[in-house]
Design a protein around this nucleic acid. Structure first.
Lengths: 150, 150
DNA sequence: TCGAATTGTTTAGTTCCATAACAGTTACAG
DNA sequence: CTGTAACTGTTATGGAACTAAACAATTCGA
């Protein structure tokens, strides 16, 4: 089993949640490092990806998709709009909502960022072969979906 | 594959890091819910587990083991000491360090908490069978260790 | 038509964490 | 020995990533 002299995580190692957090922190730190020059956080990148992937999505829809509060989206969208990567557009039928559209610059920038993120992921998950990566992704997805029946 | 109409996460779903974060947030939220009554955060629980598992560990060693800064440990240890779950003890040979020992109350409390956390994990990972849980734990451990060669 | 619900927004606050500096202590090179 | 480097716990400060509550404008629905 485990030798208390060499492994300090005697009791903690049995908890999946602990390993999940440590892995997340490790990967997130590397993301911050690689994106430091670009100045984009994970949330901002995720939001940009979502807008590029589903053009015309509203802020509320985006918040729901990303699992954060509406109020938290404002500063995030402000940042992306300030960088001229996306823009808010009024929607003819409903004057409450604003559809989010990526600018040409936003789409181009997103492609560059994807290359950076792919390199980051390649490095973070270098210890896993393709089969293991697929398995990990599948299991993580299952964990997220298992709790809440959308 | 994916239908853009039904799956808004068109571009994001290919990134392991995104799924890792979402799964972490989901599990962490459930942890907060179940431990809300006890009033202990994940970090405090982890620290208590570590002290119980390796009695006499110093604050610096604990910080290294948990992957946080020394300065961040102080308030955390204060909280545990204030709740009479652990105590700081001087070490004969070295007047700089303080060995952390769990109190009897701390050990008893930890056992109660472990039961809570096991229930929490059972619920969060209910969608996975035992083989999948083992696989997930193994993969997450590999991710954390792959990046940094300690 | 009038109350309920939704949208984007602001404000305020929480939590978790890092960075930098510090005084006290120990280790070590010369 | 001695002076310097390194390490310990600690404080102060601040930032990042949220959440909760309230708000006006708008739309929906009975």
């Amino acid at each position: 089993m485990s030798d208390p002299e060499t492994d300090p995580e005697i009791l903690l190692r049995d908890f999946l949640g602990y390993h999940l957090k440590r892995a997340y922190v490790t990967v997130h730190a590397d993301f911050r490092d690689i994106m430091g020059d670009a100045g984009l956080s994970t949330r901002v990148f995720s939001a940009l990806a979502m807008v590029v992937g589903q053009q015309g999505i509203t802020q509320s829809e985006l918040a729901r998709a990303l699992g954060v509060e509406r109020s938290g989206m404002v500063a995030l969208i402000d940042e992306l709009e300030g960088a001229d990567l996306i823009r808010r557009e009024p929607v003819p039928g409903d004057r409450r909502v604003q559809a989010l559209q990526p600018t040409d610059r936003g789409v181009a920038r997103f492609d560059e960022l994807v290359a950076l993120v792919r390199a980051h992921e390649a490095r973070c998950f270098a210890g896993l072969d393709d089969t293991e990566k697929d398995m990990l992704l599948h299991l993580l997805h299952k964990v997220r979906m298992g709790g809440v029946t959308t």
